[in-house]
């Protein structure tokens, strides 16, 4: 039943995120068909390389959820929604509440990333010509794994930030992490932003396993921190 509750809370956000992603795809497509990019196929992939990580960041921020507090369908709430007390009166541990809510958001984010990759394949002949279906699958897997850390930043922020600040907070935090990764001598094998761009399987034709593992490890640490916050928080 908690899964169903989570779905009811997130379905309009998911729809909004899908719509937004479709719009970006359509813009990419119309830009390329209106004026053939001077760089040809390489420029098409370059555009994708730049825009997709930004999109992934936004997807994670939008679908990250509100921790264990009630999240009305689309509008962000200020303060604690009163029905959160009803949820917390149920015989369910806070660990389970958080885990289910975080899982729902992650599956939705992964779904949107999958849809984004399929959409690129369908709408862009240049992209289709440069990649095989296997490489596309590897690229989608890389994005999902690397997105996990960004997603868990949102989950952690949601445990102590008001819903109205959560999405902005996670976008700003993730953008700051991106900036840091670009301006600090971070080893390339742990740079998750690089793994989504120039280090992605689309360009290197190899999976960035270490960056993916680093992202998943970081996600686990952030999730653990979120759980600790939730367990000690008062409502």
């Amino acid at each position: 039943m908690l899964w169903h509750k989570g779905w009811l809370e997130t379905r309009f956000r998911l729809l909004f995120t899908l719509g937004f992603t479709t719009l970006i795809l359509a813009l990419q497509y119309s830009t390329r068909t209106a004026a053939s990019p001077p760089g040809g196929k390489g420029a098409a992939v370059g555009l994708v390389m730049f825009s997709n990580p930004v999109l992934v960041l936004m997807i994670c921020s939008l679908l990250g959820g509100a921790g264990i507090v009630t999240q009305p369908s689309l509008q962000a709430t200020k303060g604690l929604h009163g029905s959160t007390l009803f949820t917390l009166s149920l015989p369910v541990s806070r660990l389970r509440l958080l885990a289910i809510r975080a899982s729902i958001g992650w599956f939705e984010a992964a779904g949107v990333i999958g849809a984004l990759c399929c959409g690129m394949w369908l709408v862009s002949p240049a992209f289709r010509a440069m990649t095989t279906p296997v490489e596309l699958l590897e690229y989608a897997g890389t994005l999902m794994a690397c997105a996990s850390a960004l997603y868990c930043v949102t989950v952690l922020l949601s445990t102590f930030l008001d819903d109205q600040w959560r999405a902005w907070g996670s976008m700003i935090t993730s953008a700051a992490l991106w900036w840091l990764s670009a301006h600090t001598p971070l080893p390339t094998y742990v740079d998750i932003f690089r793994a989504m761009r120039e280090g992605s399987p689309l360009l290197t034709h190899t999976m960035p396993w270490t960056a993916m593992a680093f992202s998943l490890g970081l996600a686990a640490i952030l999730l653990f921190a979120a759980l600790k916050v939730v367990q000690t928080r008062e409502y």
């Binding site: 009305p72 029905s83 009166s89 015989p91 369910v92 541990s93």
Partner: peptide, 25 residues
Amino acid sequence: DADRSVEVRRRIGFVTEDKELYPYM
């Protein structure tokens, strides 16, 4: 005790002060 509180809550009926329930249900 967080572990025991789950079992305790299974035996409690609770009405909150503000009577708020999920707005989407």
